[in-house]
Amino acid sequence: MNKLSWNEFEDCIYSIYTQCKNKHFEGVYGFPRGGLCIAVALSHSLGLPLLGKPKNNCLIVDDIYDSGQTLEQIRHLKGTQTHVWISKKIPTWWNSYKYIEGKEWIVFPWENINAADIDSDLYYQSRA
């Protein structure tokens, strides 16, 4: 199990900010739940509205690219840029702050480490 820190979160936000600060997005969309934390931070940093749904010409973020099931939903949108904090696959059409190999469960700073085993079980059941 890999527990990420708030300092690592801030480093990720700064990295995405520097890559996107000169782009002209209509807003920032973050997938619930983990993507919302990243989207709110970037919305403030970039001075962009937080969007309730993904749309063309926006910045799309999520906490992790694991199976790809979530991000594949928005791949067809035009003018977007997609960033994740952690990618468990080598990024092709999306951007990743950090790439990791293996199936190690990631615990983000906003998550309860005591519930990580339950969260992991629920996630893998939903993907079965």
Rank of each mutant, 00 (worst) to 15 (best):
D66R: 13
I60K: 06
Q69R: 15
H24V: 09
G30W: 01
G68T: 07
R75W: 07
D66C: 10
Q69K: 15
K78H: 09
I13K: 12
T18Y: 05
S45M: 14
V28S: 04
A41D: 07
Q19W: 03
F25I: 01
Y17R: 12
Q73I: 06
T80R: 04
L77Q: 03
G35W: 03
S15D: 11
S45N: 10
T70N: 11
G30T: 00
G68S: 07
Y65W: 14
I13P: 06
A39H: 05
T80S: 03
V61W: 01
D66W: 08
L48H: 09
L77C: 03
I60G: 04
G30V: 00
Y14S: 13
S67G: 15
S43L: 02
T80E: 05
K53L: 10
Y14M: 13
A41E: 01
I13M: 13
G52D: 14
H44V: 14
G27S: 06
I38A: 00
N22A: 10
G27I: 02
D66Q: 12
T18M: 09
Q19H: 12
N56L: 02
L59Y: 08
K53Q: 15
E72L: 14
L36N: 03
L51V: 09
E26A: 09
T70I: 10
L36R: 04
V40N: 05
Y17K: 13
E26D: 14
H24T: 14
V28R: 00
I16W: 05
Q73H: 12
I64H: 02
P54D: 07
G79A: 07
I13W: 01
S15H: 12
G35D: 03
F31D: 01
G27D: 06
K53A: 14
I16G: 06
G35F: 02
